[in-house]
Amino acid sequence: MKARAVVFAYHNVGVRCLQVLLARGVDVALVVTHEDSPTENIWFGSVKSVAEEHGIDVITPADPKSPELRAAIAAAQPDFIFSFYYRHMLSVDLLALAARGAYNMHGSLLPKYRGRVPTNWAVMNGETDTGATLHEMAAKPDAGAIIGQTAVPILPDDTAAQVFDKVTVAAEQTLWRVLPALLAGEAPHLPNDLSQGSYFGGRKPEDGRLDWSKPAAEVYNLIRAVAPPYPGAFTELHGRRFVVARARLAAPGSPAAQAARDLPPGLHVSDNALFGVCGDSRAVSILELREQHPGRPDHETVLSPAQFAQFIDSSRQS
């Protein structure tokens, strides 16, 4: 008899892990997901579309604690509850409806980077690896026993979006590998020692504000941690906001690195090259600079070095 599951899912990890369950023969009775927000840049796959293509009932409750949602899950009589990048914590009362357990896929190597947006935090903190972990859900976030995990590298110039693509594959591989044992009741439940890990909260677009007084490595890690399709790292100059969409640490001896020694921290242009000077007198070469239009954060114009130089010249004259 097939194992029966209710799946809470969203984003690319939700899409891929739902497909793994179906490929492994799990009877997915119900999918719970989110309505896409009109104010969010939707650059990822649709769990709702995948579920509907397979004829699975889909609901999008605004409140994960509503009695209507609990009733829908109870009616499905799940053996398992799975959560794959669903954005709300599920109550212990809700998890108890799964006769054989409730499991979540988290985008880090637990116990490191519990909490929100773990991939972005890992890149911002200069980590060299991260991964995906399937774990048992508990009252605390990302605190239950570990069922399996897969590591991926973070290369020095990877953006968070590039790392997230790797984490999505790691999540798929982890679930594919451990699911047969989990369904058979034979999967190991390994300790998740929270004392050896860390917890991080969510991030807001304002957290992408650049502080050029910080060391170049720290500035660069922020740029790549929030690079598009995330809201982007930004700086303000003469009342206008500029988003650093693509960048790289300036190589020692490069024109940008040499110019940085004589310039104050901040955004600069020289010899048709854009760069930011940081607090340690090192430079970040800016490969793509966008101007964000007032009142329209979703509307940006890519600026060439010449256009930015013209802006600087006109600002000095006014």
Rank of each mutant, 00 (worst) to 15 (best):
201 G>A: 12
202 G>P: 11
214 K>Y: 08
210 L>R: 00
185 G>W: 02
182 L>Q: 03
212 W>L: 03
194 L>I: 15
191 P>F: 10
190 L>T: 13
186 E>G: 09
200 F>W: 14
191 P>G: 10
193 D>W: 04
193 D>E: 10
188 P>H: 05
215 P>H: 07
196 Q>H: 13
205 P>Y: 10
215 P>W: 02
188 P>I: 06
192 N>R: 09
183 L>R: 03
188 P>A: 09
206 E>D: 12
208 G>W: 00
190 L>Y: 11
186 E>S: 11
204 K>S: 14
188 P>M: 05
182 L>E: 02
209 R>C: 12
197 G>D: 00
214 K>E: 15
190 L>F: 12
213 S>Y: 14
204 K>A: 15
196 Q>Y: 06
185 G>E: 03
200 F>I: 11
211 D>A: 10
195 S>N: 08
184 A>Q: 10
211 D>H: 11
209 R>Q: 15
190 L>K: 13
211 D>Y: 10
202 G>T: 12
211 D>P: 09
203 R>P: 02
199 Y>N: 07
201 G>W: 06
188 P>Q: 04
212 W>E: 00
205 P>I: 02
198 S>H: 04
210 L>K: 00
191 P>I: 06
191 P>E: 08
209 R>F: 07
190 L>V: 12
198 S>V: 02
185 G>P: 04
187 A>Y: 00
206 E>N: 06
192 N>A: 08
198 S>A: 08
216 A>N: 01
187 A>G: 08
193 D>K: 09
207 D>I: 04
182 L>W: 01
216 A>E: 01
186 E>C: 09
207 D>K: 04
184 A>F: 08
195 S>E: 08
196 Q>K: 15
190 L>H: 13
203 R>W: 13
197 G>S: 02
195 S>K: 05
189 H>W: 13
184 A>N: 11
215 P>G: 06
208 G>K: 01
182 L>P: 03
185 G>H: 02
183 L>M: 11
190 L>E: 12
187 A>N: 03
189 H>Q: 14
